[in-house]
Design a protein around this nucleic acid. Structure first.
Length: 473
DNA sequence: TGAAATGTTGGGGCG
DNA sequence: ACGCCCCAACATTTC
């Protein structure tokens, strides 16, 4: 039995890799990666700077790991829907194996590949903890509310142990020759190296997991919302690209936090939000285009270009919002609390459609994932599944004071406010003039005044939303 | 995984 | 001593 093990951008690892394990058990193995122009064409890649860097680095590490185990990752270029069936025939493989990809574009690609293949295409679970949308209510439907979903998951799903990495992968058969290409460099794709991004690859991911469990995890519940602390796992990009499997993370957390039930439950819940979002996208792929709540269809979103520019550049005059915007561009990452505050501000204060924010985040986030990003934005905008009610409008000032009480998150990303005292750093526009002078801040010159008034914006959103939903509902 | 408005209570200043 | 007012502090309601 000869198996083509098709690695894709969501399983860049050799540990806990069910297709690889089964292929090895069954006989000859040909590890393959396809540089599909859908992602790797220069003009496409240039639009995804941070994600591409993490992907290329992780891909290079995967190739190294496979080489180290005695085989080689065969890297070719071309459309997956052409290349995979063609190589499968040329190499006379008996089957193609891969992990299931739950998001709409990948599903469509896999459907076409399967249709074009003359041999079986076997998909394995592994992107998620359980098959997508497999956790059902008593009525046999997917859950529409997170908390009961989370409870049901723990009752219904046993998360099995991860598959150990193979000790050896048999060498690629001699008759397998292809027009192999080198993994492109960032420069070849027209991108600059960004040293502020997380290091890619399976080893770096496992190190992050270990460091989190050995440190911040113990006080996860109180610290996870603190934008000024390293209280989160920082595993989002690893989960996105599969450099560490979610099953590995789930089990490692269980082993490390066995005695700290509250911390473990909260961390597991975050993994289950990911699960929830993917199940939602699996059940309703149209969510990429439409709000979950149908009464939000036709919502009168609007865009003021000047305000959009201020939001993306981090020049709104609301320090936490600005810090998050700048962190996104610089680091390809934003703290979850800051994502929620920024999303609330864009959609509710500025009345800009969540879809514009979603697209901006998807472009710059290293962990940018269609299902989770979409679910998160819809949640913040109030139109999503189990979303915030529309009338829940974050106050960006009080959120900053609660979750960045010393102001260090703002100081890190908005250096022109670095010398502001904690008392005023989240509301520089109300600081006494001597405080501003002492901090070297000149409002409207070194740091903008708020581009909108909080109370007025809140009132406007409530009015518009009430009117629309009243009519739609 | 909110915030603001409104309602209630109780202590203390003060005529 | 007493009622009145003010206003924190807390609870409830509303968006």
């Amino acid at each position: 039995m000869r198996s083509l093990v098709w690695f894709r951008g969501k399983d860049l690892r050799v540990s806990d890799h069910a297709p690889l394990r089964d292929a090895l058990a069954a006989g000859e193995v040909v590890p393959l990666f396809v540089l599909d122009p859908y992602f790797f064409a220069k003009e496409r890649a240039a639009a995804l700077p941070h994600r591409m860097q993490f992907l290329l680095e992780s891909l290079a590490r995967l190739a190294q790991n496979i080489a180290h185990l005695g085989s080689r990752l065969v890297v070719v270029a071309g459309k997956s829907t052409d290349v995979v069936p063609a190589l499968a025939a040329k190499w006379r493989v008996d089957r193609v194996v891969a992990h299931r990809w739950t998001e709409p574009f990948g599903r469509e690609r896999d459907r076409r590949v399967e249709a074009a293949l003359k041999v079986p295409f076997v998909l394995y679970e592994g992107e998620l903890l359980a098959p997508p949308a497999s956790v059902l209510t008593g009525g046999g439907t997917p859950f529409a509310v997170f908390t009961p979903f989370s409870r049901a998951f723990r009752v219904q799903c046993a998360v099995s142990s991860p598959i150990p990495a193979p000790r050896k992968i048999s060498r690629v058969p001699d008759d397998v020759v292809a027009d192999e290409v080198a993994i492109p460099t960032l420069a070849e794709l027209g991108l600059a190296d960004n040293p502020r991004l997380l290091e890619g690859g399976e080893r770096a991911g496992r190190d992050r997991l270990k460091a989190f469990l050995a440190g911040p995890a113990a006080s996860y519940v109180p610290d996870r919302d603190r934008m000024d602390r390293a209280g989160t796992s920082r595993l989002s990009a690893d989960l996105k690209f599969g450099t560490v499997s979610v099953r590995t993370v789930w089990n490692a957390a269980k082993d490390a936090l066995g005695g700290a039930a509250d911390q473990l439950a909260k961390f597991h819940d975050e993994l289950l939000w990911r699960e929830f979002a993917h199940g939602l996208m699996w059940t309703r792929p149209e969510l990429l285009k439409e709000p979950f709540r149908r009464d939000f269809a036709g919502f009168p979103w609007r865009t003021e270009p000047t305000q959009w520019d201020a939001w993306t550049a981090g020049e709104t005059g609301y320090p936490v919002v600005d810090a998050s915007a700048r962190q996104l561009l610089a680091e390809g990452y934003v703290h979850n609390r800051a994502r929620m505050i920024s999303a609330s501000f864009l959609t509710k204060h500025l009345l800009v459609s969540y879809r514009e924010g979603e697209a901006h985040y998807l472009r710059y986030l290293t962990d940018g994932d269609w299902a989770q990003n979409n679910a998160g934005w819809q949640w913040s905008a109030g139109c999503g599944c189990d979303a915030q009610p529309y009338f829940r409008v974050f106050n960006p000032t009080s959120q900053g004071e609660r979750f960045d009480p010393l102001g260090d998150y703002v100081r890190r990303w908005v250096p022109e406010l670095a010398k502001m005292p904690a008392k005023y750093i989240h509301q520089p526009s109300t600081a006494p003039s001597e405080v501003l002078a002492a901090a070297g801040v000149r409002l409207g010159v070194t740091y903008p005044r708020p581009i909108v008034d909080h109370a007025a914006s809140r009132a406007r959103f409530l009015k518009v939303a009430k009117q629309h939903l009243g009519r739609a509902g």
